[in-house]
Design a protein around this nucleic acid. Structure first.
Length: 257
DNA sequence: ATGACGCCCTAGGGGCGA
């Protein structure tokens, strides 16, 4: 079973690229972030035409997350994280599909830092940690996939020294991510490719992609049940080179069935 | 230090991303 995550940066602007990628690589389950579309403008028909069912949580202009599945309709378990009734941003959706609980998340960016956006990022992180702990306690196989907006280590940025003041690389942000991992999650891509510089994002400026000036900020975290089922993991880097591409590339894991 | 690009929308420039 192949499970993928892809920050599309606008699902309607990205539709031709998304449909081509789905058709060519046929992942079984897909987490999407940054739909940048209200719920009623989700292109369900086009996605169904290439063989996928979907659940999604949209929002006008910003954010927005979805879970796609081939053939089987995902069963929605929750949308949003508990712990802040005033949080109206669409950044988390969770479903049961193919016997796995899949959490799809878009963690806040946090820039400019310091400031209210970093505060929101850190409090969202705390809420995610709390929810992730309950998922582990529930004793079901879980994948937590998405855009974490964290550069975990120096290996994960083309020029780490340039990111020291940035909300993606601040010590407290990296620490929050390490605390999450320490609950018992496995970063699937790093498990398979221990020492390789592998990126999932290249900005649109300065020919970043052709220079391979990228970051690794999108991951799939596996619960302990799933770690022994991990077969391989990778990034569909070529998709970033397609015309009208997102600034992120899809990331995937292959698990035994 | 800034801006480069590309998405969104009260559609023209401004906000936001990372």
């Amino acid at each position: 079973m192949k499970i993928a995550t892809y920050n599309v940066n606008g699902i309607n602007a990205r539709l031709p690229v998304l449909l081509r990628w789905l058709t060519e690589t046929t992942p079984d389950v897909v987490c999407l972030q940054e739909l940048k579309a209200p719920t009623e403008k989700f292109p369900l028909n086009a996605i169904q035409e290439v063989g996928y069912q979907a659940i999604w949580h949209g929002q006008k202009s910003w954010n927005g997350v979805a879970i796609l599945s081939r053939n089987e309709q995902p069963t929605e378990i929750r949308r949003g994280l508990s712990g802040d009734p005033d949080d109206t941003q669409s950044r988390y959706i969770e479903a049961k599909v193919n016997g796995i609980l899949v959490g799809c998340l878009y963690l806040p960016n946090g820039n400019p830092a310091p400031g209210p956006k970093l505060d929101y990022k850190m409090s969202w992180f705390t809420r995610l940690q709390a929810h992730a702990a309950t998922l582990l306690d529930s004793d079901v196989p879980v994948v937590l996939a998405g855009d974490y907006n964290v550069i975990p280590t120096e290996l994960d940025a083309y020029r780490p020294e340039r990111w020291l003041e940035d909300a993606l690389f601040l010590p407290e942000v990296r620490q929050a991510y390490q605390s999450l991992l320490a609950q018992g999650w496995t970063d699937a891509l790093r498990q398979v490719h221990e020492k390789e510089a592998i990126y999932t994002f290249w900005d649109y400026f300065r020919g970043a992609f052709t220079r391979n000036a990228g970051l690794r900020i999108d991951y799939l975290l596996l619960s302990p049940h799933l770690k022994p089922r991990l077969v391989s993991a990778g990034v569909d880097k070529e998709v970033r080179g397609w015309e009208k591409s997102s600034d992120h590339a899809p990331v995937w894991v292959e698990l035994t069935d």
